[in-house]
Write a protein that binds this DNA or RNA. Sequence first.
DNA 1: ATCAATATACCAACCGGTTGGTATGGTGCA
DNA 2: TGCACCATACCAACCGGTTGGTATATTGAT
Lengths: 216, 216
Amino acid sequence: MVMIPKRPFRPPAVTAREKLLDAAVLLVRAQGFAATSVDQLCGEAGVTKGAFFHHFPSKEALGVAAAQYWSASTGAFFAEAPYHARPDPVDRVLGYIDLRLALIGGQVESFSCVAGTMVQEAFRSSAAIRMACEASIMGNAAALEDDLACAIHQCGVTGTNAMSLARHVQAVIQGAFVLAKTQPEENSANLAREQLAHLRRYFTLLFHRDGEETAP
Amino acid sequence: MVMIPKRPFRPPAVTAREKLLDAAVLLVRAQGFAATSVDQLCGEAGVTKGAFFHHFPSKEALGVAAAQYWSASTGAFFAEAPYHARPDPVDRVLGYIDLRLALIGGQVESFSCVAGTMVQEAFRSSAAIRMACEASIMGNAAALEDDLACAIHQCGVTGTNAMSLARHVQAVIQGAFVLAKTQPEENSANLAREQLAHLRRYFTLLFHRDGEETAP
DNA sequence: ATCAATATACCAACCGGTTGGTATGGTGCA
DNA sequence: TGCACCATACCAACCGGTTGGTATATTGAT
């Protein structure tokens, strides 16, 4: 069992700006970006509207900042994770998947992705938000690329490459969150974990690690 | 190359109700549910607000109806598809994936999923919409279950089951759409196809069809 | 060391426009 | 004559954003 802190990866917020970004992460995960009003964000953050528009020129700008904030938080968390120390690159890749598996639990809004949620609504209406979400998700993928490249080389995998596989990891994670959101609360985590387990199996087959599969 | 009609799988709308449902599919795909206003829906459908609230008691009810409409349209389309006639169950499963691959092209909003988009925003705020989207996505999964069960039996696959694999197909598809939305228009289709190609490879490995992989 | 000048952080009240939704009236077909 | 279908006119609540203003911290010249 892994700790899933309510405000993950960070000390408590102090400035109004940080409180607003925390509120954005919370509310966007639960309701999406469009359905979250500026008043609601201020209420959740315990801050007035004046403070909001002092720190952000528009609601859209907050969306961009929230994606970057999210990216920095999660990026730091995964950079510190202990699986990086494993000697075998395949073990490191599977270690990443296992860590993501361990992070899934409780309500959907506690493990889902802010960038993935936001880009679904804003990809056409706001290029700035779309690009910030792209940077977040692709940044997450890039953090896996080196290990995947080593694993591909070591196992002699052909017909694909590290970047493509890294993106697929993110795709399965995002898809897992979408499926989880279709479920009543008590099933959502299990359904999400099931997807990561299939991804794990794909990788054990690809990297010839048969026999150590976990059954989805 | 496969026909991707602007209004997929259906003859042109005639009644106000159907025109509104078409407008809902179009606008929800492009902007999401919350960001789409009733006025906008009426404008796109060429119908007045009176007609809207004659056919639907609320915007939420339209969301539910749109998910069901979407489900019925796509369900009918895949039920008619020719891959069902293939004798080998693994071929039928791969045929489904290839069909989905062929459907991906052009702008994201022309191949993305209404149910997947809507559930991301509404899963917490509207149980009715959440359940309608669940029915749509899981109905799509169920259409694959029989073929997957045959394939699993035929190839002696252990450690998973048809339902779980069918859900994973949907998860990868939904994840592919999310990733596609992070991209500028010209890359989105390719990125989505890449995910389906990985899914295809997972299945060829699982069902021992190595050698016929398409490179992602 | 002092104090005016300036910048930063924040607040309460307010604005015009838009929102989902309603009340009512007309019209064509059974 | 009745009722499904739709159009027009309208509403209160809420939307993102602006206003004028205050409290506090920082700076720079004396």
